[in-house]
Amino acid sequence: MTRLPIRMTVNAENVELLAEPRSHLADLLRGELLLTGTHTGCEHGVCGACTVELDGAPARSCITHAGACDGATVRTIEGFEGDAVMAALREAFTAEHALQCGYCTPGMLVMARDIVLRLPDADEARVREELSGNLCRCTGYRGIVAAVMRVLDRRRGLAGPAASRAA
């Protein structure tokens, strides 16, 4: 089996590895780089458990095959230390009991962070729509939605006065 040389930046570190073209990013992260926080729940791109940040935006690592990763920048759940939005989400996820078995949680957090940053004005209905590609079988989603809303609300609260000061 011919293996491809793959160069990536993963969690701000340069990595080089040899991969079968048929292997997917989730398996490379988990198996080769031992970043097991990224989980696979379906390998069909449906459940969202494997969601990572790929070239700055959330993507399904289970249907991103090795070749497409050459030259890519990847951030996994292990790569958000020091990120204020992720820290706020983690705190909110605990406070709102937004996780039970924890399996969907890393993908859910990566998606939640994207929602918070991309859609600062999102209401609950929009948050639910944006989360709809990440399945959770334990919580019934109420805690997850509430956690994202909590972080959005707090940021809006902070942004309000700051914006008016700027004006």
């Binding site: 390998e43 069909h44 791109g45 289970c62 249907i63 991103t64 095959h65 497409a68």
Partner: peptide, 23 residues
Amino acid sequence: GGQSIGPMLNLRVVQPDAVADLR
């Protein structure tokens, strides 16, 4: 983008010998 063919590859529904990445 591979978002349609990705799952089909993973399910072995399609089994191409070679893939050309146009991205």
